[in-house]
Design a protein around this nucleic acid. Sequence first.
DNA 1: CTGTATCCTTGGCGATACTG
DNA 2: CAGTATCGCCAAGGATACAG
Lengths: 119, 119
Amino acid sequence: MAVKRRKSRVPPPPSGCPLTACMKFLGGAWTPNVIWYLRSEPRRFSELMADIPGVSPKVFSARLKSLEKDGIVIRRVMPTSPPTVEYSLTNLGQELTPAIEAIVQVGHKLKRMRAVGME
Amino acid sequence: MAVKRRKSRVPPPPSGCPLTACMKFLGGAWTPNVIWYLRSEPRRFSELMADIPGVSPKVFSARLKSLEKDGIVIRRVMPTSPPTVEYSLTNLGQELTPAIEAIVQVGHKLKRMRAVGME
DNA sequence: CTGTATCCTTGGCGATACTG
DNA sequence: CAGTATCGCCAAGGATACAG
């Protein structure tokens, strides 16, 4: 119901920090993957679920909804016989792809360096 | 004490996903900022604290320690009269900077688009 | 097919105070 | 200066089952 915040929750909101602001968009659990798989073409709910194994529908639905609220993705309900929903990136979502791609690049390099997975 | 995990915790660990792997390194609360401020030169604990307002020493210390464990930063204790500690990026940490820079770029663009801060 | 409802767990994060 | 100790919090994430 009513938001009750007892303290001020982050006292100095760093309004001058594009990094922090942008990370807000990428910080969600499966967010980068969603953007990644939507970068070239719209995909449906179950397609994305299949693309990204290990996520439960509830969490995924919540994330998608959040992304929609943030203006990253667009949810289009297709008027087909079995209800079909298509997700695609907004302009803003498209703007994020370079960052994701950079991260993927680094990820690949890290794998080559065997730096990841040596947990 | 003993870790008790009742289920299997992420059934299919996506070992083939550089994106997810790389995000592990960037996901920490203040991580991107730390890398950002260390990208050109080593900095000391309190300098970083000053660079990144709003973080408590405990959290910051924990993050730095975690980053050190992950091989992102190096902690060097200077044998000075008042103990001084210098943090710098490892090779691996340097590898991450392009991703951070891309995120910053996008962040700037988002600010220009007035897409952030309209909460 | 595309989600919601419910319930649970965890650990990251934060504040304050204190120490070598 | 550079942290650690202790405590609390609570939101995000997850499992499973069910629904339109």
